[in-house]
């Protein structure tokens, strides 16, 4: 300890950390990108055709079917998932046993096989309906669209039930006990106390699975559902523009997934409210706004 240290302070120059790895990674990535773009540009791809078929009626209606399949199958999957999760946690061994068998079967077989199974269900049940009231030939009722919804929805239910079960188990046991002690019946306890709190755990994987479902619907082309990939195949079998139409459907999928990702972000944010004493972080859009407005005020 010399007296000079206390009196004359050195004004240090701060040298920032150099992020060498970032630079190398960025350059390598750029090189690979250039190579991929160059390959596609040089290949026998007719880009005007891509643009032309992007809004081709069959492709657009196929995309509509893809979205419809996704939405309906997810709704069925979530409804079944909640039901089966609650059944699995039931103290009634028959109820939990049925739920266990359901999950065992639908998780244990490929969804592709399940789609084929539903499409050919008429081989097992030639007639459906309530005898004497409404009856119909199964082949008429189970169209490719219906078979796809049954296959995708029931399969999704098995996966969602595991997600919901994990969410329910994540809620403190004392919550259910407090509701019980107040005299709430079991269903009201589940609906108004446990499930709302389980949502924070349930939602992120559900978002993921919705995005997965959007792409899995393409399997329904195997049973003739007229979703976007099936339509693309129909078109390129006629005009032989294979790469072009695959690119068209690829762009459509990317667009839809991007929209879903944004929706997922805001839904999760909404359910995070009140769960922490900290303020929520800014959304990307808020960050952009903040970046520009704060710069201006500093200058």
């Amino acid at each position: 300890m010399t007296p000079t240290q206390a009196t004359a302070r050195i004004t240090y120059r701060i040298v920032p950390v150099k992020h060498w790895a970032r630079w190398i990674a960025a350059i390598a990535t750029a090189a690979v990108l250039v190579w991929i773009v160059a390959s596609f540009a040089g290949a026998q791809i007719d880009w005007p055709t891509v643009g032309e078929y992007f809004t081709f009626p069959a492709i657009v209606s196929g995309m509509g079917i893809t979205v419809a399949l996704t939405v309906v199958s997810m709704l069925i999957g979530i409804a079944l998932g909640v039901l089966v999760a609650v059944m699995r946690l039931s103290s009634n061994p028959v109820v939990s046993g049925i739920a266990w068998i359901y999950v065992w079967f639908f998780r244990g077989t490929p969804v592709y096989l399940q789609l084929l199974l539903w499409f050919n269900i008429a081989l097992v049940f030639p007639v459906v309906g309530i005898p004497g009231l409404i009856e119909g030939r199964t082949v008429d009722v189970v169209s490719p669209f219906v078979a796809a919804i049954l296959g995708l929805g029931l399969n999704q239910g098995a996966y969602t039930s595991e997600v919901v079960r994990a969410g329910i188990l994540s809620v403190d046991e004392g919550q259910g006990e407090a509701a019980k002690a107040l005299g709430l019946p079991g269903t009201a306890t589940m609906r108004t106390v446990v499930l709302p709190q389980a949502m924070r755990v349930i939602l992120p994987p559900i978002g993921n699975e919705t995005i997965g479902m959007l792409k899995t619907t393409s399997l329904a082309s195997a049973i003739g559902a007229s979703e976007v990939l099936n339509e693309a195949q129909h078109v390129y079998l006629v005009n032989n523009m294979i790469m072009e139409l695959l690119i068209v459907s690829g762009i459509w999928y990317l667009l839809a997934v991007s929209v879903l990702s944004v929706i997922q972000y805001y839904v999760e944010r909404r359910f995070a409210k009140g769960s922490s004493s900290k303020a929520l972080p800014l959304t990307p859009w808020q960050k952009v706004v903040w970046f520009f407005t704060s710069r201006r005020s500093v200058a």
Binding site: D172, G174, Q175, E177, A178, A179, A181, V193, P196, Q197, G274, S275
Partner: peptide
């Protein structure tokens, strides 16, 4: 019934 850990509904 009143519990040691309160068990209020946080939502």
């Amino acid at each position: 019934m009143v519990f040691q850990r309160f068990n209020l509904f946080p939502h």
